[in-house]
Write a protein that binds this DNA or RNA. Sequence first.
DNA 1: ACCTATAATGAGAATGATTCTTATTATCAG
DNA 2: CTGATAATAAGAATCATTCTCATTATAGGT
Lengths: 147, 147
Amino acid sequence: MPHPQLDQQIAKRLADKDVRFTKGRRSVVAGLVNGEGPMTVTEIQESLEVSVPLSSLYRTLAVMNESGVVSTHHSGQGLTRYELAEWLTGHHHHLVCTRCGTVDDIEIDVEHERQLEVLVSTLAGGANFDVSDHSLEIDGLCHRCQR
Amino acid sequence: MPHPQLDQQIAKRLADKDVRFTKGRRSVVAGLVNGEGPMTVTEIQESLEVSVPLSSLYRTLAVMNESGVVSTHHSGQGLTRYELAEWLTGHHHHLVCTRCGTVDDIEIDVEHERQLEVLVSTLAGGANFDVSDHSLEIDGLCHRCQR
DNA sequence: ACCTATAATGAGAATGATTCTTATTATCAG
DNA sequence: CTGATAATAAGAATCATTCTCATTATAGGT
């Protein structure tokens, strides 16, 4: 399923950076758009109808990451997972399943997010740390892995 | 620098699980105890006075992880980092430097931690997720990497 | 449409972290 | 002290990821 708004935002961002938005790249991005949360390279590859070689897939993801279109996430078994950057999907947090390793995005209401931001800047301030981002990671069993 | 209390707690845990606490294992644990936060295998290896072969180091860390003595953490460049489990060091969160990749532990006062816990269980409850742990990860530049 | 410069692709080799295999050595219980 | 079992060490094997380089596609100017 195509997603015109996102495609257009991404195309603009890439054009600004003089990075081409080719068929292969569009295909990879489409795979990410259809995912529920951060995906591994293998998951992305399997989700594509037209197969993209691994080397191209990795390179595309690296380019998208440098362009700020995707962000990376490490968790569970240490595999790198990729998802659309937050300016495209909105700020969110992660539910990490300790059994199957999948990561689901979860959103948080505005007032709780405010609380979190205050907490983050308080903590970071005390450590002379220059914050650029934060993420609440919740570990446990996803609904699929609970018996 | 030795740390008798921790050593004793760890020895007890391992004894309960019928896992031996050998010289090599003590040495690796000592390396972790002296670290400021989650360490990579390389960092651990370099911190040891008596060198431990990589294969043994990895195996020891795997055993300690299974025994609940250490926990793993993935961030930055995707390297696995190891640290003592929270029941030994107390609950804490992480400051992850996006430049050098180091991770520092940071503690949080009781009332803020309560807030966080409420938030976590609210979020997880809505997603039918069975929470076992949570961690607030703050990304940015550590004090060493700020010019 | 046709060149041309340049960027992107794809196949496979190379790297690097981690895991596995197996023979040797250390440890615990009796 | 001795045997049974667990732990160690060395190197091979694996797996994700990155790199190399020859080929192909793309955008802009003609």
